[in-house]
């Protein structure tokens, strides 16, 4: 990631990035904000050095027009958000992105009163790929599964790599059954498409666990993750290569008949 960022700086700004200082989206945002076009040169210079640009790069930016400066900074911001929220190997999102997005999707689900689902999936016997064929092949398997998932998702779904061989798919605004179909589709696709490595074709399968939030209740990322993880565990227990739903107490309790409803029905 570090290397990619510096390559990017070179591409955008020309010249090399000598600075070892780590860049962060937050620090640039804090420095630049939205009104970057109105900054004085001195302020800009401070901001640039704060995000770790070297003098030559700063000079280059200084000599461009105000308009280009804004564009350059925007590009920098975009690139940095990407590299800090992306998993380097598989190019899907990383855990940090997952946690943020899951939280905001749960908020949104409550606001819109539409359920949101979390699908956790794990590559079956992943260790065997590494042990038998080496880590390069293991990496290829990870990449291949990540690509499959990405291709089968709807535009509003996101997939993140949240662990070694574990991925999390956020399915916003989705009912239980549809989340099930989506998961099943992915599972089947992975099972049916072998990963080709050199002259070998490797069979890969995945296990999946699904948890749905109840938009009427407050569910934390942690709680939902635990539920999905439990379902994933069940999928592993029942022979792998399958999809399991979490049966949450919250889910059923909100659909239980309340005393009021009962009285009105029978009164």
């Amino acid at each position: 990631m570090e290397q990619e960022t510096s390559q990017f700086l070179e591409a955008v700004l020309g010249g090399d990035s000598e600075s070892e200082q780590p860049l962060s989206v937050e620090s640039i945002k804090a420095k630049c904000g939205d009104g970057v076009a109105y900054w004085s040169d001195l302020e800009l210079e401070d901001a640039f050095s704060a995000i770790g640009l070297n003098e030559r790069q700063i000079e280059r930016i200084q000599s461009t027009s105000q308009f280009d400066k804004t564009a350059i900074i925007q590009k920098l911001l975009d690139e940095l958000s990407r590299t800090t929220l992306e998993d380097g190997l598989t190019k899907v999102y990383n855990r940090r992105y997952f946690e943020r997005t899951m939280e905001s999707e749960l908020d949104r689900s409550r606001r819109d009163q539409r359920p949101c689902g979390l699908v956790l999936l794990d590559i079956d016997h992943f260790k065997n790929f590494n042990d038998t064929y080496g880590h390069d092949v293991g990496d290829l398997v990870l990449k291949s599964v990540a690509t499959t998932i990405k291709n089968l998702l709807r535009s509003t779904d996101t997939v993140s790599r949240v662990g070694g061989e574990e991925f999390a798919i956020i399915v916003p605004n989705t009912f239980r059954l549809d989340a099930g179909f989506l998961a099943e589709r992915i599972r089947k696709h992975v099972e049916e498409h072998k990963v080709k490595v050199d002259d070998k074709a490797l069979s890969v399968t995945i296990s999946m666990g699904i948890a749905m939030n109840d938009p009427k209740l407050i569910t934390t990322v942690d709680e939902l993750y635990k539920q999905a993880d439990k379902a994933l565990y069940e999928a592993k227990q029942s022979g792998r290569n399958c999809v399991k739903f979490s049966v949450s107490e919250t889910e059923t309790s909100s659909s239980a008949v309340t005393a009021d409803e009962r009285n009105e029905l029978l009164g």
Partner: peptide
């Protein structure tokens, strides 16, 4: 209730 809440 379940059909309404969870299956639209």
């Amino acid at each position: 209730k379940v059909l309404a809440n969870e299956y639209e």
